[in-house]
Design a protein around this nucleic acid. Structure first.
Lengths: 246, 246
DNA sequence: CGTTCCTTTGAAACCAATCAATAATGGTGG
DNA sequence: CCACCATTATTGATTGGTTTCAAAGGAACG
């Protein structure tokens, strides 16, 4: 059996049985590549497809009344995209590839059979959906913080945490692949203010140091103190799951 | 069989079979009342209990670094609370009763059997979880809007929309049961500025009119125009659900 | 009737957005 | 490989929006 990226994702949380892996393999379409900047999902489009990120990174966003844009979440390998279509026939946000990306696709109709045959997988999908829920709450918390510097610090910590989790490494520096304008769209600040605040964090506070788009975290405790970021242990509690089939 | 509040909630979305209703009844504990201001769930607490709102209203919130508070969502009858515990053993946000409230409770362990025996209910729980997900995205969108007036207008429309949905009525006025300080916690503004902006919406723009805490929507089109609020049809797409059991 | 919480208003200080312009960077084709 | 172009990053000056501080008027509650 070919190891699918979906199986790889789910086994991060729970060892799967062969029967479960076989069932998931049915969902799989061949991976497809998208070049940097491609819009994979467009807000308002009809949607009945789910995606799993195999490689690259993406972000989801919503357009705002004033012509701006709110970046909701960043997506890394293993993430499931398009989950809004579980409930609706319409995409509630857009998804754009931040760099070249490879995604696996499957139609939501295929989930029906999975839910029917493999209740433990259903529970796992549900739990993963709730993780995204918590991630959105955490973003609201960061955006609600008064003070641009705190919001920016929170966002930096958030990206750092995601990268640490996806690379299983205790990074202290990383390449911020968003432009400062994008960071502004994610934090609710304009790009010029983002620039100033980054400089303040570097020069005045000595909390970070920068080289190009690479950010090194110098005083993580300071960033934590001024932001409302909460790091979360990225595992799921499977204690309530039904037993696996076969 | 006694009609449970959970059944009532789920039947808003999908007619249930008797077998499904019976299964849900097992989940049910006797309803419990909480007086206004009571904290039902506290951020960081161990959590393995889910709640269904039978009566009253509540809000969930997170504490911020600067001593403030971010109100995430308002909850009305039929809403399911504590869903973060589906994935974690720890509550990711607090839930407080805004007025006197009655909740039904059940342990998350009971979900395992539901998922095992009734895949269609599992799919329904999943879809409802994704609805909450979309609600959080929408809140992010409102908070990301630059301009306090737009954020406030978006919040007013959001509350209006929820009340319209839960009362199946085409309201044009409603009682805003949050204090202006609470509205500030929900919109990321301070209470004094909330007060000024409400006055501006009333006197300068003629978009609302107020009597005590009751808000009448005078120019809904204007509120929509200046905010980034998107109204959503509160139904779920059940086309992909597995068939019901028995 | 007094206390408390909420609402409202004013003035001043601060933070963030906008306007304007110049460096630096990265990618592309010659 | 270099020159060119487009995008991004950076800095200053100005304007407008938001918070803070301070205080008084209302409403709700015991």
């Amino acid at each position: 059996m070919v190891e699918s990226c979906l199986v790889h994702k789910l086994e991060n949380y729970l060892p799967l049985t062969d029967a479960e892996k076989t069932a998931l393999a049915v969902l799989e379409r061949s991976p497809k590549s998208y070049s940097s900047g491609t819009t994979i999902i467009s807000e308002g489009d009809d949607a009945d497809t789910l995606y799993v990120v195999q490689d690259g990174w993406l972000h989801s966003s919503n357009d705002l009344a004033d012509g701006g844009r709110q970046i909701l979440l960043l997506h890394y390998p293993g993430d499931i995209l398009g989950t809004a279509s579980i409930a609706f026939n319409e995409a509630s946000s857009s998804v754009v590839a931040g760099g070249d990306a490879t995604l696996c696709r499957f139609p939501k109709s295929a989930l029906g059979k999975i839910f029917d045959d493999h209740p433990r997988l259903a529970a796992l999908f549900y739990a993963i959906g709730m993780l995204e829920n918590i991630a959105l709450s955490d973003r609201l918390k960061v955006l609600g913080s008064s003070g641009g510097k705190g919001r920016l610090a929170g966002f930096i910590l958030e990206v750092l945490s995601r990268l640490r989790a996806s690379q299983n490494a205790d990074l202290s520096s990383f390449e911020m692949r968003l432009t400062q304008a994008d960071i502004g769209d994610a934090t609710g600040l304009n790009k010029i203010h983002v620039n100033r605040l980054l400089r303040e964090l570097e020069q005045d506070d000595g909390a970070i140091s920068r080289a190009g788009r690479t950010i090194e975290i110098v005083r993580e405790d300071y960033l934590l103190e001024i932001s409302s970021f909460t790091d979360r242990y990225r595992t799921v509690d499977s204690s309530w799951f039904p037993p696996s089939t076969a």
